[in-house]
Amino acid sequence: MSLFKKSVALITLLLILDQALKIWIKTHMMLGEEFSIFGNWFVIHFIENNGMAFGMELEGEWGKILLSLFRIFAVCGIGWYLYDICLKKAPLGLIVSIALIFAGAMGNIIDSAFYGLVFNDSFYQVATFLPKDGGYASFLHGKVVDMLYFPLLEGRFPDWMPIWSGEHYIFFRPVFNIADSYITIGVSFILLFQRSYFVKNK
């Protein structure tokens, strides 16, 4: 099996894991519901967002469309780059890293493009797949499902600290999904091992 076919198989597996968890969350929980996996340190907390990784977003309807189109163009570019480095037999670590980034971006595109069409909303109800009255949004206007929450530390900043004096804090506050994790891991690997990934031929 070629490197590219192996990378496609890896991406397919990663997407199945990502979408399986998101669909389970969407069809078994209402927005805001949560349950503990590992004490208070690892919690499944169901939220949805309109935008980028870790809940960031562009405001307004046009912001949503622009973000969705940017994602699609970015995934096409990443896919072409992955194919190219596979043909050139790039280091396996780089191929895996790009495959992770591609799978993460693709996983969130699926939510944004199709979840609004195939699910109703999750406000005060568990969503239904292919509801009779149609979905909650049009194509490219779906929301990304997030659920992974790691509030590892919680407390208050000391009174002597400037700016945040006495304020309540939680670390790590963002709620994210598996696709976000793929992107973070892929980018981190590239940054950590770039010298071995991008060795120039003499």
Score class of each variant (00 low, 15 high):
168 H>S: 15
178 I>V: 14
177 N>F: 06
137 A>P: 03
142 G>E: 03
132 K>E: 12
171 F>N: 01
107 G>Y: 09
112 S>T: 15
104 G>Q: 01
149 Y>S: 07
163 I>K: 12
166 G>I: 04
168 H>V: 11
141 H>A: 00
157 F>E: 01
151 P>G: 00
184 T>L: 15
127 A>R: 03
136 Y>S: 00
107 G>F: 07
130 L>W: 14
128 T>N: 12
184 T>I: 10
115 Y>E: 02
171 F>Q: 01
180 D>H: 10
126 V>D: 06
164 W>S: 13
122 S>Y: 00
137 A>G: 02
164 W>R: 14
168 H>R: 14
135 G>A: 08
176 F>R: 11
175 V>H: 05
136 Y>D: 00
165 S>K: 09
106 M>Y: 00
145 V>P: 02
179 A>Q: 06
123 F>V: 14
145 V>W: 02
158 P>I: 06
123 F>Y: 14
118 V>T: 01
134 G>Q: 13
133 D>F: 08
167 E>H: 12
178 I>S: 05
115 Y>D: 03
141 H>K: 09
165 S>H: 08
130 L>F: 13
163 I>F: 15
163 I>G: 09
148 L>H: 04
139 F>R: 04
163 I>A: 12
141 H>P: 03
157 F>M: 06
144 V>P: 04
114 F>C: 06
105 A>L: 05
154 E>I: 05
150 F>S: 10
173 R>A: 12
173 R>T: 10
113 A>V: 13
151 P>N: 03
184 T>H: 12
126 V>T: 15
105 A>G: 14
165 S>W: 02
160 W>I: 13
129 F>I: 07
176 F>W: 08
143 K>A: 02
152 L>F: 14
176 F>E: 13
184 T>V: 15
115 Y>Q: 02
166 G>K: 08
116 G>K: 06
151 P>I: 00
161 M>G: 10
141 H>Q: 09
170 I>V: 15
177 N>I: 11
184 T>F: 15
120 N>Q: 05
123 F>D: 13
114 F>T: 08
163 I>L: 15
157 F>V: 01
112 S>L: 05
119 F>R: 04
115 Y>S: 01
155 G>K: 03
109 I>T: 09
176 F>G: 15
